[in-house]
Design a protein around this nucleic acid. Structure first.
Lengths: 84, 84
DNA sequence: AAGATTTATACGCAATCGCGTCTATATTTA
DNA sequence: TAAATATAGACGCGATTGCGTATAAATCTT
């Protein structure tokens, strides 16, 4: 399984959505676990830039994920997604 | 160099501060590059939960960093920092 | 295709964002 | 320790959050 690299809100949201679906959870399921509205989860996954950190961390926690901060690896796949 | 793992806003802020200092930048320097106030950078690094994703991503970008999302590694060093 | 489920959007609300600016504390350096 | 630099925190402001609640629109299932 390839790394889930995010350099933008959109990429981050896409990653979360992918993982949530792999876990067979609906946005509402996730919302129940995190006390976030389903609509809020939707906006997080859509990559809205003004979503708050607390919202992101709550989602990560519920999905049992962690964040790693590291120097940008040159020419990673993430660049391509960014082009559109 | 050990991984920079964040499971909370506080850890994330601490990581950013560490890296910024290693790069010999002040909060104002970073603010200039990102169009963020020095005070905003301060709050980001302090781990305020309501900071927006756009603010985080701007800082990451200016520091040439990227995020990796991955399953929580059990018993990592990050747990200890969480105990405060 | 119809029905059920899931996701995207909307409303008013209180709270809080980041901005612009300024000042009080640290913290570092001479 | 004095002076310089850096960080934390405040002010009012306009904008937008996530909440609570609904409903449209899109996506599965059967």
């Amino acid at each position: 399984m390839t790394d889930q690299i995010a350099r933008s809100e959109k990429q981050l949201g896409a990653i979360l959505r992918r993982i949530r679906k792999q876990a067979n959870l609906t946005q509402s399921d996730l919302g129940d676990q995190t006390h976030l509205r389903q609509g809020t989860v939707s906006r997080l996954e859509a990559g809205e830039p003004a979503i708050q950190l607390r919202t992101l961390m709550a989602a990560l926690s519920a999905l049992n994920l962690e964040l790693v901060v590291r120097p940008r690896s040159k020419g990673s796949a993430a660049d391509i997604e960014d082009l559109f």
